[in-house]
Design a protein around this nucleic acid. Structure first.
Lengths: 158, 158
DNA sequence: ACTTGACCTGGAGTGCGCTCCAACCGGTAG
DNA sequence: CTACCGGTTGGAGCGCACTCCAGGTCAAGT
């Protein structure tokens, strides 16, 4: 399997694969007679796992650290487990944050929908979708693009 | 309220606040006699919401787009709602991905724990934690830092 | 009057994570 | 033989999202 095939199978570009090898995320590939990288399919598991780490917010440095530990074999098991546990906690926090956001979005989408329908939405307004509220010029009129701002300051950056 | 206070209350740095204003995420602040930015606490809601969008993976361009729509008032309600709906879908997908990862991590952490305890873990090995498997040099010996690699290849760089 | 400190500006610098490029090489098909 | 494809390298460039800095202004405290 050469780099092009691996790229196709892994979903990463050949550039990215070489880059990952360069920085040490991927082990240095064996070469064929012509100096071209040759891969065996087991690398796909590792790439897939790396990808998952990345997709769940682990930065390159930590992935690198993990990759490095992995090359050290069984002696690094504990450290790797600890890294995964730390990551697990982060992912779990992310899930909470995102889930919370889902309901904020639902409230807001619903609010907007009601406003679009012309429903009077005023009292609960702020408490209901306790985030920012759509628009500030409730008093319509004088609301062209760049109106509401620039108290002092006449230049700034035309 | 001046920029320092806002920074403290919002958790953003003064630099970031000015940067956000420069790119248009925040409306141009009013100025006091001395040319210093003055904020009123309502801006905090908006910042908080922006922060949530960011924390849930919305890039600056989209936040900017949303901010821009917001300045247009009620006429942009539908577009804003559509943006939020699209974002909602993304967030929801992220939750799925992260949740999936949680179980992958749990399996792997558990596997590592069992390996640390010296339990024989071989048959289910690959299928159980169907990702990469910890270490390849099961045959220990000759495993110093940079051993396992560089089959062909003797030069490479100089 | 002077110092301090918070603020102002434009612009340069940073770190991440790729992505693209020029210039070259090697194997195969026509 | 030659064209072409897919690989090789080192290094430059990019987009994002800040972050830092020099050099300056202003207002309030001692």
């Amino acid at each position: 399997m050469r780099i092009g095939d691996l790229a196709e199978k892994s979903g990463l570009s050949t550039d990215t694969l070489r880059y990952y090898e360069k920085i040490g995320l991927l082990p240095k590939a064996l070469r064929d007679a012509g100096g071209r990288r040759v891969y065996d399919r087991t690398i796909l598991r590792w790439i897939e796992f790396l990808d998952r780490l990345k997709a769940t917010g682990m930065g390159i440095k930590d992935r690198l650290r993990y990759a490095d530990l992995r090359t050290k074999g069984a002696t690094s098991l504990t450290e790797r487990r600890e890294m995964l546990e730390i990551h697990r906690r982060k992912v779990s926090e992310d899930v909470s944050r995102l889930t919370e956001m889902l309901s904020v979005l639902d409230e807001k989408i619903d609010l907007y929908r009601r406003m679009e329908a012309g429903e009077p939405v005023d009292p609960a307004f702020e408490s209901c979708a306790r985030t920012e509220h759509g628009a500030q010029p409730v008093l319509k009129g004088q609301m062209n693009e760049r109106s509401t701002q620039s108290g002092t300051r006449a230049d700034a950056k035309p």
